[in-house]
């Protein structure tokens, strides 16, 4: 036992890169731990997708300081465009992901440019991004050539990886895992790069940053577009997995969930939001299966209470807790991203 403990301690001390590596290894073999059960894989894939949005949201929310509630809009755009291309034009979902990502970034630009140009901030920015979700939902509800009120179904295929359609959920699990990993890399690189620095300076003091000659609009817009691209990809993967699309995929709940998880996880913190996201979404799913079946919605009431409590009593979220914890067990020599 002591031998094992020593080994673990040594392994932990070995390299701080080990933490993400261990995590990656666990994520790799998780489908087998779950016995390849389609239902559990479905749930874990959902968690991966929603966590990807939370991580990407850090760009605009955590670093850019804009409380964006448009996640549901970009997620929905990804779902509908990818689905539309698959259903009506037989275009592979892989291409659909790219196209819908570009389309979402385009919409983000159309909305973001005037918003930042006219200095829409704080509550007004949050509200206008939330309005975007509902406007897009209704537009696609009326636009019957593309979506309309009827669900559209993607042709069934047992396993067609080139078309991005599979009867086995493990396929979507690994696709989502890859997206999450890519999102981590992108966010990390942006954070470490010039854009991240400028964004943080904007968040700390927008006027000061502007006076120092930072092109506020450009960096905010860049963050918004990268984030919307990723959110759209989650929508595309989602719609291919469930096999249909519908305008209700423009879901304001996704926006609200993303923002609350990101803030409760620690605004601008690198590991806090995804860790909290995975934990809370898993808890939520567990509660949904246990108490949610008895009293509908109770699991989300619990979810809501947890969030209000975190925000009231730990306004910085759980990020700092994770830092001090990981320092204690020697996982990291210093917080990965200082605040």
């Amino acid at each position: 036992m002591a031998e094992a403990e020593r080994f673990v301690r040594k392994a932990v001390n070995m390299n701080r890169n080990l933490f993400p590596l261990l995590l990656a290894a666990l994520a790799m073999v998780l489908p087998f731990i779950l016995g390849l059960n389609e239902y559990y894989l479905f749930l874990t894939t959902l968690i991966l997708l929603y966590t990807s949005i939370v991580v990407a949201w850090q760009l605009i929310g955590g670093y850019g300081g804009q409380l964006d509630l448009g996640a549901g809009a970009y997620h929905g755009l990804g779902a509908i465009i990818t689905g539309y291309l698959m259903v009506y034009h037989g275009i592979s979902g892989w291409l659909g992901l790219i196209v819908s990502g570009l389309a979402a970034a385009g919409v983000a630009f159309i909305i973001g440019y005037p918003s930042f140009r006219f200095g829409i901030r704080e509550v007004w920015y949050a509200l206008s991004s939330l309005a975007l979700v509902l406007i897009l939902q209704k537009i696609f509800l009326l636009w019957t050539d593309v979506a309309g009120p009827l669900e559209r179904y993607i042709p069934y295929a047992a396993f067609d990886p080139f078309f991005m359609r599979s009867g086995y959920k493990a396929f979507y699990y690994y696709v989502s895992l890859a997206l999450l990993a890519a999102t981590f890399v992108i966010v990390y690189r942006v954070r470490k790069g010039k854009t991240g620095l400028y964004l943080l300076s904007i968040r700390e003091n927008e006027e000061a940053a502007e006076m120092l000659g930072v092109d506020i609009r450009k960096y905010k817009l860049r963050a918004l577009m990268i984030y919307s691209f990723i959110a759209a990809m989650t929508g595309g993967i989602y719609t291919s997995m469930v096999g249909f699309y519908h305008p209700t995929l423009f879901d304001s709940w996704i926006s609200i969930q993303t923002v609350t998880l990101a803030i409760a996880g620690g605004l601008g913190h690198f590991w806090g939001p995804p860790i909290l996201s995975v934990i809370l979404l898993s808890v939520q799913e567990y509660l949904r299966i246990s108490v949610g079946a008895v009293v509908i919605g109770l699991h989300q009431v619990i979810f809501g209470i947890i969030l209000v409590l975190i925000i009231l009593f730990k306004p910085d979220g759980i990020g700092p807790l994770i830092d001090s914890f990981s320092k204690k067990i020697g996982l990291m020599k210093a917080p990965l991203v200082s605040r």
Partner: peptide
């Protein structure tokens, strides 16, 4: 700590991916 370089890490991850996919 130097023992695990980036290349090695990549190899490990790649191996895991292959194992996972083949496993499925």
């Amino acid at each position: 700590s130097k023992a695990l370089t980036r290349t090695q890490a990549l190899v490990i991850v790649a191996a895991l991916v292959i194992v996972a996919v083949v496993g499925v």
